[in-house]
């Protein structure tokens, strides 16, 4: 397959630098390091601001100086952001949003990967009528702006009583996760020798038994990438949670925007930034822990936007 996003994992990142070997410490060398260090500072700045502010007491924030290090360190904002900051009358902090996100995440990741793997498998190994048409429609679905789908989906969910339930959100994530998941597994299965499949067929394997017994166990590396991709993607989703989730199921991102909306006179920046870090924590941990897998995942899944 020649999908551009997939190209990246043909070439492992760790192969080693290809640029010229250093010729001592010349001005060019210093320039390169200066460029890299300045860039790194630019990328780190927001994370630094969030962390530093989240452990400052309000008295210090009032004095200004968003970028100065705290003179007193307090973890109270973190505690408050987690369990007692107010959204309107609801003073349970951001933790309900966290648990909502988890409740949305687990079934959505599971279902979307399962359906995607199954579809990718069917399209790769079995002769299906109009397979190209189906695949093209799926691809388009990955690229089109959500705004085209959203209103009819709202109406369909309302009519079926799914609106504002967790099922609506899970279903939505399956719907919009399907193209990328299918693409991912279709590409992966394209790399599996067809003879393996033929042998399984000769042994009397049927559609589902080959999938569960042979293909799924062989797909572990792709499953890992898919899980990383879906966990970060679904965790970071905002528009679906906002539109379909309703009050009781709003994910952490939606709740964060409500939490930081000023309700009292003084904005508690330290609490807000602590809540923001917490919301970013899950995908960041996935990223830092899984490193290279993550790079593969985003490259393959960035089409999802």
């Amino acid at each position: 397959m020649s999908t551009p996003p997939a190209k990246i994992h043909n070439v492992p990142m760790g192969e080693g630098p290809s640029g010229r070997a250093p010729k001592g410490v010349g001005p060019a060398r210093i320039g390169i390091y200066a460029f890299l260090v300045i860039s790194a500072l630019f990328f780190l700045l927001p994370l630094y601001v969030m962390i530093v502010t989240s452990i400052k007491p309000m008295e210090e924030i009032r004095l200004g100086g968003l970028f100065t290090l705290p003179t007193t360190i307090t973890f109270e904002p973190w505690a408050k952001a987690w369990s007692s900051a107010c959204t309107g009358l609801d003073c349970r902090g951001i933790s309900p949003g966290f648990w909502n996100s988890v409740k949305i995440l687990v079934p959505s990741v599971f279902c979307s990967i399962f359906v995607g793997a199954l579809t990718g498998y069917a399209l790769s190994f079995w002769r299906v009528r109009c397979a190209n048409l189906l695949f093209a429609a799926l691809l388009l679905g990955a690229f089109l702006p959500y705004q085209v789908f959203i209103y009819p989906l709202v109406r369909i969910y309302s009519a079926t009583g799914l609106f504002s339930t967790i099922y609506a959100l899970v279903l939505t994530h399956v719907i919009f996760g399907l193209p990328v998941m299918t693409l991912l597994f279709r590409n992966y299965y394209a790399g599996i020798p067809i003879d393996l499949f033929k042998a399984a067929r000769v042994d009397g394997g049927r559609f589902f038994s080959i999938f569960f017994r042979l293909m799924l166990p062989m797909s572990i590396p792709m499953l890992v990438v898919a899980v990383i991709l879906q966990v970060t993607g679904i965790w970071n989703d905002f528009i679906m949670g906002l539109t379909f989730g309703g009050l009781a199921n709003r994910p952490m991102t939606v709740q964060l925007t409500n939490l930081v909306a000023p309700t009292e006179g003084e904005i508690a920046y330290n609490v807000n930034m602590a809540a923001t870090i917490m919301t970013a924590a899950v995908p960041l941990i996935v990223y830092f822990v899984s490193g290279r897998w993550f790079v593969r995942g985003i490259a393959a899944g960035a089409v999802k936007g």
Partner: peptide, 11 residues
């Protein structure tokens, strides 16, 4: 350099 890409647009 890559970590921002893991963050949501909201954050």
């Amino acid at each position: 350099i890559l970590y921002p890409y893991a963050m949501s647009f909201i954050v």
